[in-house]
């Protein structure tokens, strides 16, 4: 009995040791279990929650699959965790990054697990926006000095006695709480919690022709459906940005306009062959992206269908991305 137990234990340990390779297992080198399962080379793209990013991924996926013969997986991850995933190789590329200096420093400069993939070609801009119908009726709302005048019209159940400034996904870069405080505005920042919730709310307001003030950004397809006008905030200055970098709660100026960038996993960048090459060359305009995003979000086309249509319409744009 006792000997049998010992034999069993030894056998189990041995099995465990062989099964685990009896050595180190670096989880940062472990890819997705679904990758390469169907016998084709797989590229995993990170798709962030906003539709512009989905448009990038959809077109890249379509071309990788149909022109270059790869299998493409897309995983939806929030921006900052996506950097971690990218560094670990769980995703191979991020196609649209709005600027994360901390992450860039950690992964690109220090750990060198992430490699820059060049510009996407689209510039991004964050700001405060009101619907066009409201701006037309009250043009002076477009200056932040006059916002308090309209606070009472922008009240909702959630904002209490103040005006509502609608914010979106917690993953977005936002200084709105600090701005409201430092500009001494009679507003309450209400976090929608996700972009989907924010869009739904905006569309519902627009349908009712109700006024609203929202954190928003471009390029964004929603402008085609709900025309919005930006409210002018105190001008962005480097001094203000420097101040904000030290203590985010002191920021009192507008958001910067930034070049959206691509990033690749270092390993993938080196060994990814044609796919990595292609993703580095991927470069298009705001109009291109919006066209695809619009089809996905507004016409409710499946992403691959939207990508297909765009690809058919604009061969001149994407031909240049293919590796020779």
């Amino acid at each position: 009995m006792a000997t049998r137990k010992i034999v069993t234990a030894v056998a189990a340990l041995g099995l465990l040791a062989t099964a685990t390779g009896c050595g180190a297992a670096d989880m940062t080198k472990q890819g997705s279990p679904y990758a390469n399962a169907a016998g084709a080379k797989t590229v995993t793209l990170s798709v962030q929650s906003w539709v512009g990013a989905r448009a990038n991924a959809a077109v890249a996926q379509y071309l990788l699959e149909h022109e270059l013969g790869y299998r493409v997986d897309t995983v939806q991850v929030d921006e900052v965790p996506a950097w971690d995933a990218l560094s670990q190789g769980r995703v191979d590329a991020i196609l649209e990054d709005w600027g994360h200096p901390d992450q860039e420093k950690r992964y690109v400069d220090d750990k060198r697990t992430v490699a820059p993939g060049g510009d996407l070609g689209v510039t991004g801009h964050i700001g405060w926006w009101v619907p066009k119908y409201f701006a037309d009726a009250h043009p002076d709302v477009l200056d932040w000095h006059n916002l308090d005048k309209y606070a009472s019209q922008l009240r909702t159940a959630e904002s209490g006695g103040k005006g509502q400034l609608l914010d979106g996904s917690p993953s977005y870069v936002t200084n709105d709480k600090a701005l409201v405080k430092n500009l001494n505005l009679n507003y309450q920042v209400v976090f929608a919690g996700s972009e989907a919730a924010q869009i739904t709310q905006i569309k519902q307001f627009a349908k009712e022709k109700r006024p609203f003030l929202t954190y928003w950004y471009e390029p964004q397809w929603l402008f085609n459906e709900v025309p919005m006008v930006e409210v002018k905030l105190p001008e962005y200055t480097d001094a203000c940005a420097a101040k904000g970098a030290k203590d985010p709660s002191t920021i009192d100026c507008a958001y910067p306009t930034s070049q959206l960038k691509k990033f690749l996993n270092t390993n993938f960048a080196k060994k990814g062959g044609k796919a990595a090459d292609f993703l580095r060359k991927f470069h298009w305009t705001k109009a291109d992206q919006n066209e695809v995003a619009q089809m996905i979000a507004e016409d409710k086309l499946p992403a691959d269908e939207a990508a297909k249509r765009w690809v058919q319409r604009h061969p001149d744009v994407w031909r240049g991305w293919l590796p020779r």
């Binding site: 929030d78 965790p81 996904s169 976090f191 996700s194 709310q201």
Partner: peptide
């Protein structure tokens, strides 16, 4: 979806790492 409070903190924590 705007519930705020603790739920938002978790979502925020996940989203911002």
């Amino acid at each position: 979806v705007g519930g705020g409070a603790l739920g938002y903190d978790v979502v925020f924590g996940l989203a911002q790492g």
